[in-house]
Amino acid sequence: MATLFIVPTPIGNLGDITRRSVDILKSTKIILSEDTRVTKKLMKLLEINYSDKRFISYFEHNEEHKISEIINLLELENDIALVSDAGTPIISDPGYKLVREVKRANCADIAVLPGATSVTTALVASTFPPDKFTYLGFLSKKTGEKEKLFKSVIESHRHIKSTYIAFESGYRILKTLKLMQNIYGENVQVALCRELTKLHESVELGACSEIIDMIEVKKLNLKGELVLVFNILEDKNG
């Protein structure tokens, strides 16, 4: 029986890829890539010859109609590796539907390799309680939906105390922090994580107002995706 390998890639530092991930990328002939150009660049940096490999573009907008093709390849006993542009596949990237259908079809083994993910890296770096955490994924571009989500967090937090993690665009983070300040007031602490594992990695800690001030006064470089970690404090007013 073939194997579908879920292969994590570095989130910034090339040295964070595991030996097992490298071995799988070397030995597997079919690679499912979110962006084939990014994957080929990574393999070149890792000195992996990919001239004999078949790359299949597998991303959000073609995910569902690619599943039958991939299952057919697995049924023909072709091992396949699924990678994303950075980090562990399926966490906010395409793949869970494929894994579900492969499991249902019982056409291949599924091997999930451990590796880099910005979710838990940011959680540990935040200094907030890590024993219970809730991953909110990519925050909506729409302010109304974002506001609804943040308000629902208040209700869920009454029942289960948790640290919250989300991805946000650098272009929207200032507006998002101001929205959080309006909803939570001073009852929230924020960790804004940038460039994790890279040369200019930084984790800014403080109240929303403090992080907003850092952005507006220090003119922080906020390009790309940021990891926003926040911890709701006990309401001192009861």
Rank of each mutant, 00 (worst) to 15 (best):
E47R: 14
I24R: 03
V190Y: 01
K97M: 12
I173A: 06
D109S: 12
D23R: 15
L199T: 09
K26A: 04
T9N: 05
K148P: 09
N182E: 15
C208M: 04
I70T: 12
S152K: 09
F150H: 05
L46Q: 07
E216P: 08
T39V: 13
N221W: 01
I30T: 08
A125Y: 11
L74A: 08
V188S: 03
G95A: 13
A166I: 02
V7F: 00
E69I: 09
L42I: 08
E34M: 14
G15N: 11
D23S: 15
N62W: 00
R172V: 06
L82A: 10
N182W: 10
S84I: 05
K175R: 15
L82R: 03
N106F: 00
G95K: 03
R104W: 08
S68M: 12
D235V: 15
K218Y: 07
E210H: 08
K132W: 00
G87V: 02
A86K: 07
C208S: 09
Y164P: 02
I31N: 03
F230S: 04
Q189M: 13
L42D: 06
A105P: 07
T39A: 13
E147Y: 03
L4C: 14
E75P: 01
I67K: 02
I56H: 04
A125D: 10
F5C: 03
G87E: 03
E64G: 09
I232P: 08
D131P: 00
Y184V: 10
I56Y: 04
E101W: 11
M180F: 13
V203S: 06
E216C: 05
S21E: 00
I6L: 13
V153S: 05
I211P: 05
L196D: 06
L98N: 13
Y58T: 07
I173Q: 01
G206C: 01
K178C: 07
K178W: 10
K175V: 07
M180C: 14
K178V: 07
H159F: 12
Q181D: 15
L149W: 08
T176E: 00
T117S: 14
L192V: 07
L226T: 01
T134S: 14
V22N: 03
K175Q: 14
S21G: 08
S169I: 02
A81F: 10
T127Y: 06
G137E: 04
E195F: 03
N221P: 09
N237D: 15
K198I: 02
K26N: 11
L76C: 11
E210C: 11
G206P: 00
K66L: 10
S68L: 13
K178E: 13
N182V: 13
